[in-house]
Design a protein around this nucleic acid. Structure first.
Lengths: 189, 189, 189, 189
DNA sequence: AATGAATGAGGTTTCATTCAT
DNA sequence: TATGAATGAAACCTCATTCAT
């Protein structure tokens, strides 16, 4: 009488869950429950725990997916082919980041502003990337000799705040202008 | 078998609860519960609800107390007596803010990084203050003609991040140096 | 700084509380709280307990007042002056009772249909009265030789149900017709 | 330290809870709590809520069970085989009803006289059944041409009161005699 | 690999009643 | 006679996680 169990390759099932969770989190933000995810996928509650030890592990996987997607779409510029205009590249990347993040909808809150973000700090991937950009720009002579790592950390907070501001309805142009000014003022000689 | 009732003026009892909660939150961070607070104070659970309709209302009161304490200890500089060196004043205030916030211990997380901060946004008092400082500095000719409000918002995020960095063990001097550099670069002509 | 205490004759204060409670119960039915009553009267919570040991005692007092009011307005007919048409007198009394009870509004539920009615059964005043009427009618030869006490008890249940029916929106005329038919059929030879 | 989990078919577990609740309510009347029920069954509190969203939902299910049990044991008489002696059938059914209800013990109060009965009126199943009997008897020429529906409602109140009277210790024979007299007087030509 | 019944700690809130003042 | 702060048991419900099947 039970519905036919769908046996799937483990990796495929894992993806299915991941995608369903992402979809629901985008739509409804934090507050999405395991029950809703498994109903969306059409599996039993226990199945969830075969793939993710805890709910936080799922969120972590979702976060990692997002970061990978962003890195893939917007790879760090490289000077291999030709010289890079680092200030312009930074502006462009930052704008892309903000738009990407705002586009996450409720997923943004779930990943960055819920208790989850406290329990599982995000490993500073973004800060590491920004540090790399600053160093590359410094080597190219485009950026001043600031202390790259702490500067990247603080600037990334400002960038993230721009995201929240825009998501909350602040004027996009004024926010970006202020952000660009801060970045230039902090990094350019 | 019941402990002797201690009858207090409402305001005194309210303070008692507030202080006990603050003490526990400093020590143990978010995750402190109503039950622990009332045990600490030595009153019944119902007494808590006499003064705070919900746990979030308590946190809000704690937050307000903190903000008032900071504002009282570090009032905004004024030019009434003599001209103010705005860049220096800002550096000094920012350093005071970071040290004050780091000194909050677990209370910092409970107020700024838990779901509470999402549910009850803090009304941007700090951003308003920073905006006022920027405008005052602009009028005095010390700061460049940046768009004060969004700039204040983004810079405050960087300041707050410095707090988190120092609290998390980052090098205090390098963090402050980077922060000062960002503030100068963003605000000074 | 406190509001001037109004010292009243104990009996006057008791009446005040009683009347306030009745007013609120009429308007809002069961679910009225002690707090609301004392606020309405303008006294402190503790004052309530100087006059009524428990909430149920207040309800009991309200109930007694109502019964007295009804008895006073609709006294039992007596044959002292002239012969009584007992069937007609009963019909008339019953109709008066139903209208009186329906007119109680929310007080009706609070007195007759809440847990209070279970905890403090109403002493059967109404049944005693109805028993007396049946006996008087029997002595006058108007009513059949039924077993007065149990009959009164069961018939009163039907009368009370007519009250609930009318209060709940049942057709008044059909309800009264059915009730009269039951009373006649049960009591008249 | 945890007790071994007992896994059951949902319907079986539901029955288990229902039966335990009925047992406790019979023994202790209204005032039985969810905690007592789950202790009796030997399951966790959450399990209760898996089957009954609220305590009232449980009571409703218990009530429905009782009504079904009664209907099954004492089906309405039918004229399919041979003519029915409606007055006698009614007397018999009524007596069965009263005895059944008195036999409920504390469950009777919990179902019929607690606030629950106010919050979840019982849908008048009994009145509907009595109405049907009256109409059938009228068609057979055994009952007078009374207004069936309101009459049934009022008479059922008297029947129910007989239950309460007997449960409270009133003389069974006198109560039944009075009840039979009322029914005959109201319904027979 | 999959199921879904069961768990139980967690958290919120209410209000009749008591009692120190 | 009056106050009103304090009590604390009771009731409610949720949901991440476990585990017998």
């Amino acid at each position: 009488m039970t519905v036919q169990r769908r046996r799937l390759e483990p990796e495929a099932r894992r993806q299915e869950i991941l995608e369903a969770a992402e979809r629901l989190l985008r739509a409804h933000g934090p507050g999405v429950r395991i029950d809703e995810v498994v109903r969306e996928v059409g599996v039993a509650r226990g199945t969830f725990y075969l793939y993710f030890p805890t709910w936080d592990d799922l969120l972590e996987a979702v976060r990692a997916r997002l970061f990978e997607a962003f890195d893939h779409t917007y790879p760090l510029p490289s000077e291999v082919r030709r010289p890079v205009d680092w200030p312009a590249a930074l502006d462009w990347l930052v704008e892309a980041f903000v738009d990407f993040t705002v586009g996450l909808g409720g997923l943004h809150d779930a990943i960055f502003h819920s208790d989850f973000a406290q329990r599982r700090p995000s490993g500073d991937d973004a800060v590491v990337r920004l540090t790399a950009i600053i160093r590359a720009g410094q080597e190219a002579g485009s950026f001043a000799a600031v202390d790259a790592e702490p500067t990247a950390r603080l600037l990334f907070a400002a960038i993230h705040e721009a995201t929240d501001a825009v998501a909350a309805g602040a004027d996009r142009d004024r926010t970006f202008a202020a952000l660009r000014h801060i970045l230039r003022g902090s990094l350019c000689p």
